[in-house]
Every structure is written in structure tokens, then in C-alpha cells.
Amino acid sequence: MSVLRKYTVIVSVSLSTVLLLNSCSGSKASQCQRLIQLVNQGNSLIDKNKGQQVVTSVQLSKDLEVITKSIQELNLSDPKLKEFQSRFVAVFKNLSQAIAKAAKALSVAKTAEASPSGREKLQTARTEIDTALTAAAKSTGKESDNLVKQINKYCSEP
């Protein structure tokens, strides 16, 4: 997800340019700024917490739920930004759910005993973690990257 960090910087720079160029027409620019700011917060949380332990993963899932709700509650009037808003809500909701599922599986794995049934639990947990995070990273990561490019382009237009 390091690609997200790159796009966060690109979006931030582009947003600054948009705000300078469109200072008279603050409606679209301010809506872009609010949406991008929340998206950047969510992406920063993901980057900051990559590879952390179960407790952190559970907290990251909860934090992403808060970001998702904040994005959802934005009062945007621009139809295109509303579309971006709903798509980003889906992205962060999917990531939050995948991280929560992986954290739960990791928690089970940590409590597995050194026995045949414990090894089976461990293998099942490992598969669940891999499935949840790999699927989320592939589909949601691509969608997020695509959305960042689109919103960057849209918010740069006069």
C-alpha cells in the first residue's frame, strides 16, 4: 500500500494548486478539500499501522470505521464528488472489515495450543488472514488508487 502514500502526496499538492487557482469559486474546491483530507487520514492510518499486532489491527479497523462514517457524513453538493464519496466509503468499509477479520484470525492463531488441533487452528487462521488481507489489498487497493487518480483529476479542473 505504499502506492497510497505516493498518491496522498500527489493529491495534497494538487489540492493546494486547485485551491490557489479556484480561490474565488470555493464551493467545489472546499468540497474537494474536505473529502481528500478524510481520505488522506484513512490512508495515513493504514500506512502507519501496517504489520502491527492484533490489538493495533483491531484499533485500525475501528479507526477506519470512524473515517468511513466521517466520509459518509460529508455534506457534498457536487454530484461527481458525491459519487467519489460513496466509492471511498465502500473502499474504507471493505478495508476495515478485512482488517477486522484478519485481526480476529490472528487472535485465534496466538491462542492455538501446541497440538494437532492447535496446528489445525493455526493453519486455518493463517489461511483466513491471507485470504482477507490479500483479497482486500488487491481489489480495494486498485480501486483506491483509481479513485485517487480520478478525484485528483476532477478536483484539478476549473
Rank of each mutant, 00 (worst) to 15 (best):
residue 67 I to Q: 09
residue 28 K to S: 02
residue 47 D to V: 14
residue 36 I to H: 09
residue 61 S to E: 02
residue 46 I to C: 06
residue 17 T to L: 14
residue 87 R to E: 15
residue 104 K to T: 15
residue 81 L to M: 07
residue 110 K to N: 14
residue 143 E to Y: 01
residue 142 K to I: 10
residue 141 G to R: 09
residue 35 L to N: 02
residue 19 L to E: 15
residue 85 Q to P: 06
residue 21 L to N: 15
residue 131 T to P: 00
residue 30 S to K: 12
residue 137 A to W: 02
residue 65 E to P: 00
residue 30 S to R: 07
residue 52 Q to D: 01
residue 152 N to Q: 15
residue 98 A to T: 06
residue 150 Q to R: 14
residue 38 L to D: 02
residue 60 L to H: 14
residue 79 P to D: 09
residue 40 N to R: 10
residue 18 V to A: 14
residue 88 F to H: 09
residue 64 L to V: 06
residue 13 V to M: 07
residue 147 L to N: 04
residue 46 I to R: 07
residue 35 L to D: 03
residue 14 S to V: 02
residue 158 P to T: 08
residue 46 I to P: 00
residue 75 N to T: 14
residue 86 S to D: 14
residue 58 V to P: 00
residue 63 D to A: 13
residue 110 K to M: 12
residue 112 A to L: 11
residue 63 D to R: 07
residue 32 C to N: 04
residue 9 V to D: 10
residue 10 I to H: 04
residue 134 T to A: 13
residue 12 S to N: 05
residue 132 A to I: 08
residue 44 S to G: 09
residue 111 T to G: 13
residue 139 S to D: 08
residue 46 I to S: 04
residue 60 L to Q: 06
residue 106 L to V: 00
residue 119 R to Q: 15
residue 17 T to K: 15
residue 33 Q to N: 13
residue 122 L to C: 10
residue 109 A to Y: 07
residue 67 I to V: 15
residue 25 S to T: 15
residue 37 Q to T: 13
residue 93 K to E: 11
residue 39 V to P: 06
residue 116 P to D: 12
residue 131 T to K: 08
residue 155 C to L: 00
residue 156 S to Y: 11
residue 67 I to Y: 05
residue 108 V to G: 10
residue 66 V to L: 08
residue 114 A to G: 08
residue 78 D to R: 00
residue 151 I to N: 06
residue 16 S to T: 13
residue 70 S to D: 14
residue 117 S to T: 14
residue 105 A to E: 10
residue 55 V to W: 01
residue 37 Q to G: 02
residue 138 K to M: 05
residue 41 Q to P: 02
residue 64 L to S: 11
residue 151 I to R: 01
residue 114 A to I: 13
residue 35 L to R: 03
residue 110 K to Y: 07
residue 44 S to T: 15
residue 9 V to W: 08
residue 99 I to A: 02
residue 103 A to H: 11
residue 109 A to H: 09
residue 11 V to Y: 04
residue 87 R to V: 11
residue 57 S to K: 07
residue 107 S to M: 09
residue 48 K to H: 14
residue 36 I to D: 01
residue 150 Q to I: 12
residue 151 I to L: 09
residue 47 D to M: 07
residue 97 Q to E: 05
residue 68 T to E: 02
residue 51 G to W: 04
residue 87 R to S: 13
residue 62 K to I: 06
residue 82 K to V: 06
residue 24 C to K: 14
residue 100 A to Q: 10
residue 140 T to K: 03
residue 144 S to I: 09
residue 99 I to W: 04
residue 82 K to L: 12
residue 41 Q to D: 09
residue 150 Q to C: 08
residue 7 Y to I: 03
residue 150 Q to E: 15
residue 63 D to I: 13
residue 77 S to N: 06
residue 14 S to K: 12
residue 17 T to M: 12
residue 155 C to G: 01
residue 158 P to A: 12
residue 137 A to D: 12
residue 83 E to W: 03
residue 28 K to R: 12
residue 94 N to G: 03
residue 2 S to I: 05
residue 80 K to D: 01
residue 99 I to G: 04
residue 98 A to G: 07
residue 135 A to G: 07
residue 65 E to C: 10
residue 130 D to C: 01
residue 79 P to A: 04
residue 56 T to G: 03
residue 42 G to F: 12
residue 120 E to F: 13
residue 13 V to F: 02
residue 41 Q to W: 04
residue 112 A to D: 06
residue 124 T to G: 00
residue 144 S to P: 04
residue 119 R to N: 14
residue 57 S to Y: 03
residue 136 A to V: 08
residue 158 P to D: 05
residue 73 E to T: 07
